[in-house]
Amino acid sequence: MNMMSTAGRVLLFFISNLGMWEYFRRKSKMNIFFCRLLPLACRLRCFFVQVC
C-alpha cells in the first residue's frame, strides 16, 4: 500500500466500497454482520491481546 500513489489508494477504496455495496444490494438479510463479523472481531481482539 505504501508504494502506491494516493490516486491508486483512492481507487482501491472505491473498489472496496463497491464490493460492500454490491454485497448488500444482493443480500436482503444483513444478519451476517451481527452473527458472524462482530463475534469474529471479538475473537480477533482476544487473539491480539493474548499474542501482544
Binding site: 448488500f24 462482530l38 472481531a41 480477533l44
Partner: peptide, 30 residues
C-alpha cells in the same frame, strides 16, 4: 454500515483489525 462496524470495533479496541477486515472484505467481494 461501515461507521457502525468501526464504532463497535472502537469500543472493543480492535480498530486497526476492523479497518483491515472491512477493506479486505470489500476488495474480495468486489
Amino acid at each position: 454500515m461501515q461507521i457502525t462496524v468501526l464504532f463497535c470495533a472502537g469500543l472493543l479496541n480492535c480498530l486497526k483489525a476492523a479497518v483491515l477486515l472491512l477493506f479486505c472484505m470489500g476488495i474480495i467481494l468486489a
